Simulated scan of single mutants.
Amino acid sequence: MPSRTPHRFRRTAALVTAAAACLALAGCSSSESSSATPATPSASSGRGGAASGPGDPAGSAGSARPSRTGEADRPGPVHVSIPSIGVRSTLMELGLNADGTVEVPPAEKGMTAGWYTGGSLPGTPGPAVLIGHNDTRFGRAVFHDLKDIREGAEVLVRDGAGTTLRFTVTGKETVSKKAFPTRRVYGPTKGSTLRLITCDGEFDAEGHPVDNLIVYGALA
């Protein structure tokens, strides 16, 4: 009989492989167009905000979410708040664009963060990934002050059933989009973990932030 790999680790390995394949497409768009702009699991859009993939991200992301044993009846996250930096936002669902890259919230919804449905559900083993803009062409966005968050800060994630999960920030880092730590962000974890991702750093010649800010958290 052939050996069998646990479902969760097969899914995670596929996720990391897909993420790594997208890294070369990292970037934020300065275009005002509403067409899809390449974005990766490593990058939410910054100033000038990249548009999402075709259609509403909350509506198109569902098919990108893999089936996960034991999660079929669990509601997804619908709200995030970070009291220490004044963040309060509903969460839209983010899936994959047609080219296999990860959706980001549309620029016109810059004050709304999103949950990447290809990752884990908050509260289950593995990393749950929330993506938000720093700035868009419309101005200040939901994760503008994420750089000010400190280790030990609380991040509260509420699901559709009204249950609030408390995560504690364990660290943060700013990384070049050209050297994004895919496995550190998307790789398997034994416990329930959280990653908050936005753009950061200087701008390149086309007005794209060159870095990502990643905040790491763990279920308290």
Rank of each mutant, 00 (worst) to 15 (best):
G152W: 10
E151P: 00
G160M: 04
R166T: 15
R158F: 05
H144T: 12
T163P: 00
G152A: 06
V169W: 00
A179T: 13
A179S: 14
H144G: 07
G160H: 09
T170C: 03
K172I: 00
V157S: 11
G162V: 09
A153T: 05
D159Y: 07
A141M: 07
K172C: 00
L156P: 12
A153S: 15
F167K: 03
L165Y: 11
V157L: 12
T174S: 14
T170H: 01
V157M: 10
A161D: 14
E151Q: 14
G171S: 06
S176N: 09
T170Y: 01
V155N: 12
A179L: 08
G162E: 07
V175I: 05
A161Q: 11
F167L: 02
K172Y: 00
F143Q: 07
G171N: 02
D159F: 06
R166H: 11
T170V: 09
L165I: 01
V157F: 10
T163H: 08
K178Q: 13
T170W: 02
R158Q: 15
K147L: 09
D148C: 04
F143H: 04
K178F: 09
R166M: 03
G171E: 01
A141S: 15
T174C: 04
D145M: 06
L165D: 03
R166F: 00
D145F: 13
L146H: 02
A141T: 12
S176G: 13
R166A: 10
I149H: 06
A153F: 04
I149D: 03
H144M: 12
T170K: 09
K178I: 01
A161E: 11
R166P: 01
A179M: 04
L156S: 10
S176E: 05
A141R: 04
R166I: 05
T164Q: 10
T168E: 13
K177T: 11
F143R: 05
G152H: 06
T168K: 13
G162D: 05
F167Q: 04
E154V: 06
T164K: 03
L146A: 05
